[in-house]
Amino acid sequence: MSATSYAVRDNLTMLRRSLLHARRYPSLTLNLLLTPVMLLLLFVYVFGDVMSAGMAGGHADRSDYLAYIVPGILLMTVGMTSLGTAVSVATDMTEGIIARFRTMAINRASVLIGHVIGSVIQTMLSLALILAIAVALGFRPDASPVQWLAAAGLMALVSLALTWIAVGIGLVSPNAEGASNLGMPLTMLPLLSSAFVPVNAMPDGFRWFAEYQPFSPAIETLRGLLTGSGAGTKDAVLAVAWSLGLSVLGYLWSKARFNREPNR
């Protein structure tokens, strides 16, 4: 077998390990999914009429507000799931399994790649669940097949970017609790974006940050795709640029940290 074949085999082995771990310990994924589900229910049934009336100039339409917040909830789910990856990586580092992998004749990068691919797969399944809940609540997307493919690709790209950042967080954290704390920006940034209210409704001090931080362009692009209204070029370019940039940054950070990380 060639070196490439061995690397692919090792990546698939580590991916299988990641998926088996998620299947045997589903409580972490379920706990992370609880927050976006609760926020979806809260904003639809408690704040839905008030928020929709405020955004529509006094005309309350809960279904319109549901269509508005679903893209934000979906990308918040991406952030929540990636936080679980940070915790899993930190757990591996502290429990000694990484030290064992270092002594084995395996591709070193496969340890991280298995976590990343496994996390992206789990994230896409989680997004399907959240979307199903939203549809049950009355969300009716009006996307064409091409727009659905673009939306799925965008969510996968954002997931890849945040997962690589989460892997780096897990590697620099002293333990799983530290990884959970350091990864909080992944779950808090959507709250300072256009997920729940339009950016132009925010105070001047927050508007610029909310408009150009990674989540807002992705949310606006996803919103345009799911509603069938089309994604703005500026937001789409920013969303892809942020995702690719964070993917490269997270990969380089994680690789450098993993290669020099001492056994714990």
Rank of each mutant, 00 (worst) to 15 (best):
V111P: 00
V199T: 14
L125Q: 08
A156E: 05
S110I: 08
I97P: 00
H59F: 13
N181V: 15
A241C: 11
V116E: 10
N200S: 15
M80K: 03
L189Q: 04
I113W: 05
F258G: 03
G54E: 11
V197T: 11
T85Q: 04
T123W: 05
L30H: 03
L74A: 14
G72L: 01
V167C: 08
R16N: 12
T35Y: 14
T4Q: 04
G153C: 04
A3D: 13
F139C: 09
K234R: 14
T221Q: 08
I106P: 04
E177H: 10
R140G: 08
G153Q: 10
L66N: 04
M124C: 07
G57C: 09
S110G: 04
M184Q: 15
L189A: 14
F258S: 02
G118D: 12
D49F: 03
G224V: 10
W242V: 00
A136R: 12
N31V: 11
T91I: 04
Y45C: 01
G230R: 10
M55Y: 03
A210E: 00
S194G: 15
P262V: 08
L41D: 10
S173C: 07
P203H: 11
M14D: 04
R9Y: 07
L39F: 15
L226V: 09
A161H: 01
A86M: 05
L32S: 09
L249G: 11
R207F: 01
V50Q: 13
A210V: 01
Y65T: 00
L192H: 02
D64Q: 12
N175Q: 09
T81P: 00
D235Y: 06
A239K: 02
P217N: 03
Y68N: 07
R16E: 12
M188H: 04
M188C: 02
A109T: 15
E211R: 15
A156R: 01
T13Y: 14
D204F: 06
S82K: 00
T187C: 08
D64G: 08
V70H: 01
A99R: 10
N181Q: 15
L129Q: 02
P198I: 10
S110F: 03
T163K: 00
G84M: 12
G58N: 01
T227F: 02
R9P: 01
D10A: 11
P217I: 02
L20H: 07
L75K: 01
A56Q: 14
I117L: 14
W253P: 07
P141K: 03
A56I: 05
L131R: 03
L83E: 00
Q213C: 04
V197D: 00
V50F: 13
L222P: 00
A218L: 07
I169Q: 02
M124R: 06
A150F: 03
